[in-house]
Design a protein around this nucleic acid. Structure first.
Lengths: 173, 173
DNA sequence: AAGATACGTCAATATGGCTGTCCCATCTTC
DNA sequence: GAAGATGGGACAGCCATATTGACGTATCTT
């Protein structure tokens, strides 16, 4: 048994005490999440590299595609990075003609972000790669598994942020 | 509907054609994976920052804890990074007295890695944070969901690498 | 003895974050 | 209408983590 497990009572069954899991169940989740997540993004990295872009650019493209005309501050809230970091990314995307902005109608201080035609095409290409990966994983696992997959992941997101994520998905819960 | 979805026939039901998912199901998976994964690691980042370490160090500590006396090349294979990158990380961990090495008995060229007592203690602390997060997500979702969660994630890992991951977990499948 | 392998190291480079500071335009409030 | 809050942008410098390429040494295999 691995050294750091010494303090964990392995005899405790998860059914008896669901908040004190056996180490193997935790490690399995951690590892599958790590490898699953990195493999999902790996395919995309190649497409991005061809354009001299990185994962940060994809995240911006992705969420702009998801919610056209969202404001810079909304995107900042979603990504959880600083204004400066996002600023660089957005400038690079604008330089390449993938993203364009317009002045907010309600609040003229706001800049609303959306993809150009080229940007939408590029994002769609990257999205295809995500769809292919997820489609094969979903169909190999079956619909019930997919629901469980979603449920567990939702539980990993702190209460305070869960609403934001579900909002993105149009879940008004 | 988001711009890049234009090429996706939303009418196609996933049951009829599981390999051509509706966009919303893909986006939901992508987003939950992104937010779930980053939130899981966020808690750990704080503990690491106190010691002046980063996520890369944690990954090394984690897998060394998981398989004491594993070789440098095994760790390289698991992490999928370059020798140079790992070298720096291991040196920093050794400098802080968290990791120690021994010469391989079978093959004296190998260096076998394991945690010192301090290293094991530190890794156990970080692991606690992982266990807490996963425990609450698992128990909120229920055992069936957890199984589905695992199944989908396994499907995200390419065939060629799946054996390596399952090996870690003692699944000889 | 020759070649492959395990490991380490020097050097340069890229990416994507961060902090701190300062600025301007616009909206809100008093 | 002035004061302050807010949305957005920009400059400078720093840090962590990864990369490539080249080279060196000890050890194992053939």
């Amino acid at each position: 048994m691995a050294v750091p497990s010494s303090s964990i009572p392995e005899r405790t069954s998860p059914a008896a005490s669901p908040l004190f899991l056996r180490e193997e169940e935790v490690r399995r989740g951690v590892e599958l999440l790590y490898f699953g997540y990195t493999r999902l993004t790996r395919a995309i990295d190649e497409g991005l590299a061809k354009q001299g872009l990185g994962r940060a650019h994809h995240r911006a493209l992705y969420f702009i595609a998801r919610q056209p005309d969202l404001s810079v501050s909304s995107l900042l809230r979603i990504l959880g990075i600083t204004k400066q970091s996002l600023g660089r990314v957005l400038n690079e995307l604008a330089d390449r003609g993938l993203v364009e902005t317009s002045v907010g109608e309600i609040d003229r201080r706001q800049k609303l972000l959306r993809l150009t035609e080229a940007g939408a095409l590029f994002e769609a290409q990257l999205f295809d790669s995500l769809r292919n990966s997820l489609a094969s994983a979903y169909s190999a696992a079956g619909q019930d598994s997919v629901t469980g997959f979603w449920r567990v992941l939702e539980g990993l997101i702190p209460e305070s942020e869960r609403a934001m994520v579900l909002d993105l998905q149009g879940i008004s819960k």
